[in-house]
């Protein structure tokens, strides 16, 4: 399975790791980090919104969070997905 990663564990950042999934498997998201208990729902939504905008339907996403807000999380998800696709990230 192909995997790609973006981000760091610096303050206000996160590491997003994405792994290819078979067609029809849908989106799976696992998260860890201090903010997950409070903002987990919003983080899932931000991740799913980004994946949708990129046309991704089947993928495994792992997020190690260190206080990244929506903006940073979305940017890291996009970078990881583009790296997985092997194309230019922007």
């Amino acid at each position: 399975m192909k995997t790609a990663q973006a981000g760091t564990l610096e303050s206000m950042d996160c590491i997003v790791t994405v792994t290819e999934a078979e067609k029809g498997r849908g989106i799976s998201i696992v998260m860890e980090g201090a903010s997950v208990a409070r903002f987990g729902e919003a983080m899932v939504k931000a991740t799913k919104d980004t994946l949708k905008s990129l046309g991704v339907r089947d993928i495994f996403v792992s997020i190690q969070d260190n206080g990244a807000g929506d903006l940073v999380l979305k940017a890291r998800v996009e970078a990881a997905v583009r790296r997985l696709a092997g194309g230019k990230a922007a």
Partner: peptide, 14 residues
């Protein structure tokens, strides 16, 4: 460079 470009773009959009 690729990840930074996306991050900078989104920070600028904000």
């Amino acid at each position: 460079k690729d990840a930074a470009r996306i991050l900078v773009r989104d920070v600028l959009r904000r």
